[in-house]
């Protein structure tokens, strides 16, 4: 039975490959449920986005087969990436990435690299904002930075998500800009981090907009600057007086920091161009839905879309940036 099964399985794969190569007019489509791997735990930012996409795809019937979300969060996401890396030629497995695509292999030495996967598409970029407690005296980023510079090192405390990942990299960049080291305290999730700041246990955070928005609106937190080269485009008021677009860039405040987090899709290695095209097209359709636009606005995402070579180039550039930053901060695996 076993042998026969294997034989039949192989026959199907071969047949599928032959059809693919023959380039029969019919475009490729998934023939069974597609596993959507999330290299992070349930409830986090990447997981939310993946399940949201799953919902959109199901609700708008964008795909005949269901999209199935699978969390593989072990080793800061290494488990998920290794799983997709190992699924060579399997078109029914895609992965949503965050910055741990770069940081995890660099910080832990776990053997994988984005080149082991097939780049699909960039969905959006997540912003980072420097937040302080609303009761603190700092009204602008400059005041805060100047105070850090004026006080001895290790006076200020920064809370962030995870260790040697995006939040700590940004902290290291701020350290470099001020010349004074801050104490970085890692927590498990972005929501926890924001609450530590609301409770006054730390001085600042670099939460993503969606993680801290409620506290901003509730008058508990104050955004100082945004880590991008331009302001956000969302002009709808969040608080009585301010909108996302009113937050100045950190650059303008004299802290030359730019950091955006990738929210993108990768496929298993060795899939055909047809299959990549199917997913790129699928995510284009997802991005056109009104639900997606709402979600983007809620989380103040930067809505850049890329695919193909442009995307691969962007990823490659971002990877070398991470390597440089992490090397400087001493985060590379020994």
């Amino acid at each position: 039975m076993n042998k026969f099964g294997k034989w039949a399985g192989r026959a199907i794969v071969t047949a599928a490959a032959t059809f693919g190569l023959a380039g029969i007019a019919q475009a490729w489509e998934p023939t069974k449920p597609v596993e959507f791997v999330v290299p992070a735990g349930t409830g986090g930012g990447a997981d939310q986005m993946a399940r949201f996409i799953q919902g959109i795809v199901a609700k708008n019937k964008l795909m005949a087969q269901p999209l199935v979300v699978v969390n593989k969060s072990g080793g800061a996401g290494a488990e998920g990436f290794l799983e997709v890396k190992g699924a060579k030629g399997d078109p029914h497995k895609i992965i949503i990435t965050l910055s741990n695509l770069f940081t995890t292999p660099l910080a832990t030495g776990v053997p994988f690299n984005w080149r082991d996967l097939t780049p699909g598409a960039m969905l959006a970029l997540d912003q980072f904002v420097l937040w302080v407690n609303a009761d603190s005296p700092y009204m602008t980023a400059k005041e805060y930075i100047d105070d850090i510079k004026a006080k001895p090192a290790s006076t200020f405390k920064m809370a962030g998500t995870g260790s040697k990942q995006e939040d700590q990299i940004i902290t290291a960049m701020i350290d470099k800009a001020t010349g004074k080291k801050m104490i970085y305290v890692p927590f498990k999730g972005g929501g926890d981090v924001a609450v530590q700041l609301v409770g006054g246990h730390v001085n600042s955070t670099v939460n993503n907009p969606i993680e801290a928005e409620a506290h901003w609106r509730g008058g508990k937190l104050r955004p100082l600057c945004i880590m991008d080269n331009e302001r956000l485009s969302y002009t709808e008021k969040v608080t009585a007086t301010q909108s996302w677009a009113d937050i100045p860039t950190c650059q303008s405040a004299g802290v030359p920091i730019e950091y955006l987090m990738l929210r993108g899709i990768f496929l298993a290695p060795g899939v055909t161009q047809d299959q990549v095209d199917f997913y790129v097209d699928l995510f284009k359709k997802v991005r056109e839905t009104p639900e997606w636009a709402d979600f983007m606005k809620k989380g103040a995402f930067k809505q850049t879309f890329m695919s193909g070579k442009e995307f691969a180039d962007w990823v490659s550039k971002t990877e070398s940036m991470h390597y440089g930053l992490m090397k400087e901060a001493g985060f590379l695996a020994k």
């Binding site: 099964g5 294997k6 039949a8 269901p66």
Partner: peptide
């Protein structure tokens, strides 16, 4: 699991042969 909850469980060659 597979149909309602959309949770994939481990499958072997026989399921693959049947196209799952």
């Amino acid at each position: 699991f597979e149909r309602w909850f959309l949770v994939p469980l481990p499958k072997g060659p026989i399921e693959l042969m049947l196209g799952f």
